[in-house]
Design a protein around this nucleic acid. Sequence first.
RNA 1: GCCGCGUUCGUCUAAGGGCUAGGACACCACCCUUUCACGGUGGUGAUACGGGUUCGAAUCCCGUACGCGGUACCA
Length: 513
Amino acid sequence: MSKKVRVRFAPSPTGGLHLGGVRTVLYNYLFARQQGGDFVLRIEDTDQSRYVPGAEEYIYECLQWCRLQPDESPQAGGPYAPYRQSERKALYRQYAEFLVQEGKAYYAFDRPEELESMRERFKTAENPSPQYDHKVRQQMRNSCALTFEETERLLADNVPHVIRIRMPENETVTFTDMIRGEVSFNTSLVDDKVLLKADGMPTYHLAVVVDDYLMKITHAFRGEEWLPSSPVHILLWKYLGWEKEMPQWAHLPLILKPDGNGKLSKRDGDRLGFPVFAMNWTTKKEDGSEELTKGFREMGFLPEAFINMLAMLGWNDGTDQELFTLDELIEKFSIDRVHKGGAKFDFEKAKWFNHEWIKRSDAAYLRPDVKRIFQEQGIQVNDDALLERVIALVKERCTLLTDFVEQSKFFFQTPQQWDLAAIQPKWNEAKQAFFTEVISYLQQQNNWVAADLEQGFKELAAAKQIKPGDVLLPLRIMLVGGKFGPGVFDIAGILGKEETVNRIKKVLEQLQK
RNA sequence: GCCGCGUUCGUCUAAGGGCUAGGACACCACCCUUUCACGGUGGUGAUACGGGUUCGAAUCCCGUACGCGGUACCA
């Protein structure tokens, strides 16, 4: 019987949740659900200087919107609480001290200026960014270079210090990544990373290992940017004596900007006009002003589409299927089908997913969102049943939820402006007369059904020797204001007799002027 | 610079030694539609380069190029 699967998503609360972050959540979630495991949310807030108020709440809301709720989190609690690293601060020091005792780590008293000057001193054209590693270790102010007594004295005097891992020389660290296969590194080329900061907080490197161990994480998914520091983490698992419990690693490919190359950033979204964050995020700037970054949710995406699109960015099930529900994804997801290479984000394709999801969602499901969007636009909708009929009629031409406004507001508001330029050039007495008769025909109708209206309208046109094509567009413009919308008789059907007649009359008056 | 990871149509990807390299988005054309969309049919379009191994390579090996990531008391 193997261990129960436990995975975690460990964001740092520093701002809006990025596409790539949501995809990492998704893969974690899918894997956990499929394996009958637990999905935990751990907040990595060890850098107090980067703490951003509201960012943590934002993360909860994103996960809720995406339906990717964690089983354990700071909010929900759980058997391994606390789940916020700042609240676990006291716990990390002992492990770092243990490593010092074991000779696997050491105290370093170097001040920022000293680090800076070391980097300046060793900087050459061939080595533009010197590392704090075995080559310089003995020349720095740390417990490797100082005598035992000196070190003890500095410690006793509470001189600020960090604890660094002592990377061995010339060893090869190898591990099997679930996505990339065997990966190996030479330890001589990795620096002595800080494990415990001067303020007593752990760095990511220590915290991720300690917490993954304590929280019994079995599979660790993270972005590819972590691959280079993975040897540090592997060694830590080993030095701490936990090698047998080490999770299996999976380094996910990056999501790249659509033009050029490089990691997709918030800037790219602003620049190219698409969202990068899951939901709206407001950045408070230093001068007190606020900057809003649009999110997928507010831009009119359905969470199903957002998730579906993200799942396909780097994964597929081997068939031609592209549309998946969350449940299908849970069933079919597999780590070995995740791509190794990064994927450029394509907003057009993202919109296509949303369009597909809007088409396959039923009107009742869409109604609350659409109603809210209408209200935000100042359009009151009181009749839910009517709204649903309208949604069903226009949804196939809406790519974003916000498109419902343009596509259907004329059902709830009489147009105030008409594209008369599209009718006037070919307008004449015969048409004027025809529409006058149309009005009286419509007024006589007791059974107000789109198909009947269409038939009656066409018969009337035939009787007047008018081609339906010559009067259909004018009718459309009279009813909706422009050259858009669903079938014109479907519109009349929903508008009802009175409103339909009024709209025709109104435009007829305009045309007579 | 060094280390690591990548590289199939413009984009997302399929094909894990063997048909004319398949699908989707986007684009173009046509059909349907007396608006727009939906739907349908067709089209343009890719294995980065060079060497091996093999009867046979997108696929395995080596090299080159290019890209990305890392090289912080950030995560």
